[in-house]
């Protein structure tokens, strides 16, 4: 199968701390890959390297078979990153935020307006498009945070805990939207601590801990391999990563 993204043997240290110890996984076109791990497992570092914001000490990230280091601009053009924090201009309207961030990907004129309108629809914010972000609820900001990252129609979206601290309606909307994006061919790397979200949207799951991949598979295969078929994904996760409290 042709992988859209291949992550191979990533190693990264910060000072004496060896954070990534040979992380590797693949992402296929149109698939939602959940990246799970307890706090401090190495998820954020992995995501920062995969999104080309941080350089690995060794290892490779291949996009369509080619190292991203040799094609950074092209790669970033086809990538959408949803940061864990709300990264929006609060004083600007939703439309202006979308327009600004999407224009960074080279869209302008009618193409830009169409992309912004579609993203507003996707986020369920078309009727609040011209309101300032600072007047939005937490859920609306989260939806706009995602919309700003995917309005340029990337082939791969990286979503770092995009549903933290929001109401069930907004969470449901976001999960349905991700399903729509997948149906349109977008691949998604998704990190979360909510196991029910993973069961709802993930095609495959990669569990990492202490800087290494400790399990890979579908939700069902992980249950079969590491617990019983009637166990929950959370049971599997706790079995794999232990019950010791993390930082």
């Amino acid at each position: 199968m042709n992988e859209l993204l291949s992550v191979k043997e990533l190693e990264k240290s910060f000072g004496d701390k060896h954070v990534l110890k040979g992380i590797g996984f693949d992402v296929r076109p149109g698939e939602v890959l959940a990246l799970l791990g307890p706090n401090g497992a190495g998820k954020s570092t992995t995501i920062n390297i995969v999104s080309a914001a941080l350089q690995a000490d060794s290892g490779q990230v291949l996009f369509k078979g080619k190292p991203i280091r040799g094609q950074i601009k092209t790669y970033k053009q086809r990538l959408g990153v949803v940061p864990q924090d709300i990264c929006l201009y609060e004083e600007l309207t939703a439309r202006r935020n979308l327009s600004f961030f999407t224009s960074l990907y080279g869209l302008h004129g009618d193409d830009l307006e169409e992309a912004v309108d579609r993203a507003l629809e996707l986020a369920g914010l078309a009727d609040r498009a011209d309101d300032r972000v600072k007047t939005f609820s937490g859920g609306m900001k989260r939806r706009l945070n995602i919309a700003c990252s995917i309005a340029h129609d990337p082939e791969l979206a990286i979503m770092d805990e995009p549903t933290v601290g929001i109401d069930p309606q907004s969470r449901n909307h976001i999960l349905e939207s991700i399903g729509d994006l997948r149906a349109n061919g977008m691949a998604v790397i998704y990190t979360t601590h909510y196991m029910e979200e993973v069961e709802a949207i993930a095609d495959r799951i990669v569990v990492i801990d202490h800087g290494s991949v400790i399990a890979t598979g579908t939700s069902d295969s992980l249950k079969n391999d590491y617990a019983t078929s009637d166990a929950s994904l959370e049971d599997v996760f706790l079995k794999l990563t232990g019950r010791t409290l993390r930082d």
């Binding site: 601009k73 092209t74 053009q77 086809r78 201009y89 600004f100 999407t102 224009s103 960074l104 990907y105 080279g106 869209l107 302008h108 193409d111 169409e114 992309a115 579609r118 993203a119 629809e121 996707l122 369920g124 995917i150 309005a151 340029h152 129609d153 909307h173 349905e176 939207s177 729509d180 994006l181 149906a183 349109n184 977008m186």
Partner: peptide, 29 residues
């Protein structure tokens, strides 16, 4: 929820794209 397909045109990077992008960031700043 209504399904919306995101179909923004893929834009090829040109030599002017970087200048235009810088101008956009500068105006925002």
């Amino acid at each position: 929820m209504e399904t919306i397909a995101i179909q923004a045109r893929c834009v090829t990077e040109t030599r002017w794209a970087g200048i235009r992008r810088f101008g956009t960031i500068f105006r925002m700043d």
